[in-house]
Design a protein around this nucleic acid. Structure first.
Lengths: 223, 223
DNA sequence: GCTATAACGCTACTGGCAGTAACGAAAAGA
DNA sequence: TCTTTTCGTTACTGCCAGTAGCGTTATAGC
């Protein structure tokens, strides 16, 4: 997102750089500083001055790269997202459990959890930020989940009437509610419980969902 | 929450009021103005000056009643919560559907939905606000839901291993996720779909949850 | 080298808002 | 009348986002 107004592509395909080039370490230093500030004080007390101070950089240097504070934050958050990591298990229930568990860990063990509430607020009034956050952070994750669910429908593991988007909301919802609304500590079982709900309703194999299905499906998180 | 530093209770139980009494309409005027500002601009652009202006009141008058902007907002929100309205249906599934539908409507049709994101952010750094919001707005609602679920367990409608708090999260989660995270428009079916999930997993009667259970339980929101 | 260009750190500024202080005036009880 | 407290008004402090202008420095092309 560090806007590349510097480089102008030339007819020969090379980059024409005029003037003093940007220092190669500054971007990284700013992102690192931003993350450290976010971890320390959360979004609402996150100030650009403090980021500049910790990065050993002038404030205008920040604004040369990111026009808004919120954009810098989104960029910093994006670096915290887990990589693709080719999905390991080959059945839908384990895949969903894997994803839900990973989201739960991201929310509890990375700055994302600490920052999310403030970001959510800003999204409500800053459409650009909302779009950036959703397309860079939320959507990539949801797309993975969506593909897993659709695959499950195709293979017959899930019922054909499965409401894909609702399933995604149902898996992520309980995790977000705790973090954002009730403030209760994250329940390590929550991902598994959520997957249970989804399977109980949408799994094609009728046995699932009653009694104690934990053993009938899988033991725990795959990661 | 309008702090009553004015009245001092006397031994005889009467109120001892010294000095000029507060104007009886000012509290209501401020709350009304606050709500109108919230509706118009949302929490992050909500300013006390604007509230004072619309209420035809000085800024210090606001601060005489509510020490923080966030406290005024919580108070204003509280007036928007639906009343108790003795729970109508007598079976758990209809009760939960009723509550979930009411939450959905509150989130979409009252200022609460517009304000919630910003409030959530502020809660992350303001423990007092978080406590006030949770005890005045979140908890009363959850308590109703909790009682319904526990009643269902007692009557045998729900399985004894039902995880009560998780059920609450699972019912509210999908609604909040849309509002706060994905920004997708509220799905009018979401409350019903969420109840379906819960019943499919925790209902004691095994028929529920497969095929098209919509007709096997109830048609729609009870309100 | 020399020149043009743009990044850099620095300082200073504008503008908006939360929250406070101080005032004179008004409303009530004692 | 005296005391107390509210009320509106005005003015203030302090914080922060974001911008402007400065002199300096690194690089590419001539």
């Amino acid at each position: 997102m560090s806007n590349a107004g510097v480089a102008v592509s030339r007819p020969d395909g090379q980059e024409l750089v005029r003037g003093r080039p940007r220092h190669p370490d500054v971007d990284a230093a700013i992102i690192a500083a931003a993350l450290s500030v976010l971890v320390d004080v959360g979004y609402p007390r996150f100030t650009m001055v403090e980021v500049a101070r910790r990065a050993g950089v002038g404030k205008p240097t920040l604004y040369r790269r990111w026009a808004r504070k919120s954009q810098l934050v989104v960029e910093a958050m994006r670096t915290q997202m887990p990589g693709e990591a080719a999905l390991p298990p080959d059945n839908v229930s384990d895949q969903l459990l894997h994803y839900a568990t990973r989201l739960s860990e991201t929310l509890t063990h990375t700055p994302l959890g600490r920052v999310l509430p403030g970001l959510v607020a800003e999204m409500a009034t800053d459409p650009d930020l909302a779009a950036a956050y959703r397309s860079l952070i939320i959507e990539p994750t949801r797309q993975l989940w969506r593909e897993a669910v659709e695959r499950g429908i195709r293979t017959g593991e899930l019922l054909p009437d499965t409401d894909v988007d609702f399933v995604l909301d149902a898996l992520a919802g309980p995790l977000y509610v705790r973090l954002l609304i009730t403030g209760a500590p994250a329940d390590p079982d929550a991902p598994w419980l959520a997957v249970q709900l989804v399977l109980a309703r949408y799994s094609a194999s009728p046995a699932v969902g009653a009694a104690d299905p934990r053993r009938t499906i899988s033991a725990g998180p795959a990661s």
